[in-house]
């Protein structure tokens, strides 16, 4: 019986995997897309920053992040830096992330900066 249940769970997960749009949790998304520039600890000192002309925002700083509303953060993640008159170096993520996943990242950023 137990085995059957395990098998069923496996089967259902496989089914879910095979259907295209998979929603990842915010921490995985932050690691996969944002770490490259914003850094493993979110402090803005990522792998890529050495030759970047504008430095990525420090997501752990309440001062740098506190003035932004959730709607502001949602917009810059979805549409990129240019959409809010900031650097082209902050990419738009609307093709990588669903709206739900972006909302998840906004919450995650609030945890990092402990603000809002």
């Amino acid at each position: 019986m137990r085995k059957n249940k395990l098998f069923l769970t496996l089967f259902v997960s496989l089914l879910m995997l095979s259907s295209a749009a998979w929603s990842d949790d915010a921490e995985d998304n932050y690691k996969n897309y944002c770490w490259q520039c914003h850094g493993m600890t979110g402090d803005g000192m990522g792998l890529n920053v050495q030759d970047m002309s504008v430095q990525p925002r420090d997501h752990t700083s309440a001062k740098a992040m506190g003035g932004r509303s959730d709607a502001d953060l949602f917009k810059v993640i979805k549409e990129g830096g240019l959409a809010i008159d900031k650097s082209v170096l902050m990419p738009p993520w609307r093709d990588s992330l669903s709206d739900d996943e972006i909302h998840g990242l906004v919450k995650y950023l609030r945890k990092l900066c402990q603000c809002g």
Binding site: W35, G39, M40, T41, M45, L47, V49, Q50
Partner: peptide, 9 residues
């Protein structure tokens, strides 16, 4: 990678 002094290395 791992965190370094000025950036992740």
């Amino acid at each position: 990678i791992q965190p370094g002094k000025k950036r992740d290395m």
